[in-house]
Design a protein around this nucleic acid. Sequence first.
RNA 1: GGAGAGGUGGCAGAGUGGCCGAUUGCGCCGCCUUGCUAAGGCGGUGUACCAGAAAUGGUACCGGGGGUUCGAAUCCCCCCCUCUCCGCCA
Length: 429
Amino acid sequence: MLDLKFVRENPDAVRAGAVKKRLPDRAAAVDKALQIDAELRAMLPKLDAMRSEQKNAGKEMGRLSPEQREAFLGKQKERKVELQGLEEKEKQLRADLDAQLSLIPNVPDADVPEGKDDTQNVEVRRWGVVRDFDFVPRAHYDLGEAQGWLDFTRAAAMAGSRNYVLIGDLALLHDAVLRYAVDLLVARGFTPIDPPLLVRDAAMYGTGFFPGGEEQTYRCEKDGLNLIGTSEVPVTSLHGGEMLAEGQLPKKYVARSACFRREAGTYGKDTRGLYRVHQFQKVEQVIVDIADKDRSIEHHQQIVANAEALLQACELPYRIVAVCGGDLGVPQAMKYDIETWMPSRGNYGETHSASRFYDYQARRLDLRYRQQDGGKATYCHTLNNTVAASPRILIPLLENHQQRDGTVRLPPALRPYLGGRETIGRPLG
RNA sequence: GGAGAGGUGGCAGAGUGGCCGAUUGCGCCGCCUUGCUAAGGCGGUGUACCAGAAAUGGUACCGGGGGUUCGAAUCCCCCCCUCUCCGCCA
């Protein structure tokens, strides 16, 4: 969340931020929060004075004679009743303030483009050459089923729509690209993490997915736990509630995990193939560092570069877009999406999402560090980006590297994970 | 799942109803002594909020929530977590 003081001092900027994100009801939360804050601050001096009075009076108890004591107790009981009323009011106001404050979105940075949805994201740069096929390329689902690598029918029968079964070499390719992603990031100094997939509400709240993302989340009601939609949740929460030393930072983590998304409200969208599914594997990079805006921006460039390195190694054309306000999530200050060329869509499709948050998540997670000089406790900055999400990344891998005969050429970087083979699949008739 | 023991400041660890925001040690910061280092001496050192230009003052916080009481770190209830033992099981 944002610092209440910051909201108080910059209400217009905060409100404008919510408007830029196209979240009018969240802009209203700014005014509600400020109103509650004003009400609370109006009553606090009185409340504090009353508490002080009661506290000091209580300390004289021992010095009183029995007669005095009786009168004293009567007076104290009156104070108590009066105090209880005010304290109840205070508690209610604080709860309301907290609820409103947690709704206020992070303020988008100046480099976030204006726009209402993903059609207005702004391209930053492109890499790679989109292949010009000298045959009619197959969509990954046709190719995959023809090769016996993909089974949507049986998956739907046992698990419902938006599920899949990967079989044979495609299951290996899936694992290969994920493993390559982990190895790449470990080589770049990231610490590998295998996190919990089921987390408490506090972790969902702390990373900014709750409130708001409940409908997208599979929940185990019996245990009050949530299946993660991204390992950003457990990994960013890793040091929640901790006081880190500045010397320990930055923390750079790479996690491979299963991810689960209900995809509520997407009926009829991307129904075919591997693009939008309920369960997938993702390798995610997370950075926790000191509260320094310039350093956050540098990290942001670095985590984008890490993802680019993977796509380049996979020889996949991609483009980077700056996500516009209307397509930006509540907790993010700025986000780049990386979109990879998908021939069956005739377009680039989102495969990566790189966000910087500044201290928005850290405040919610109570994730702080002690500054080296001065020793002041300060909220950290957090960032994250996909390294590889599969099976979605299999779409461009299969479609861009397919050959006329239906076999698929493997980029050299992935070959070691598939026994050194240069292609997978058999010639199709 | 059953039984027991615990959760206190950056860390360790006292504290069982008012004298406790909390002894002490470590760590950290400043100064002093010592030509470096080691060691030592003195002082300081939690977070949030409110008021204030500031100095400072006030309030809240001892895992979380509720209760008893004039008054709770301390007593009671619920929940969470950790440890030990037992059971069950990948």
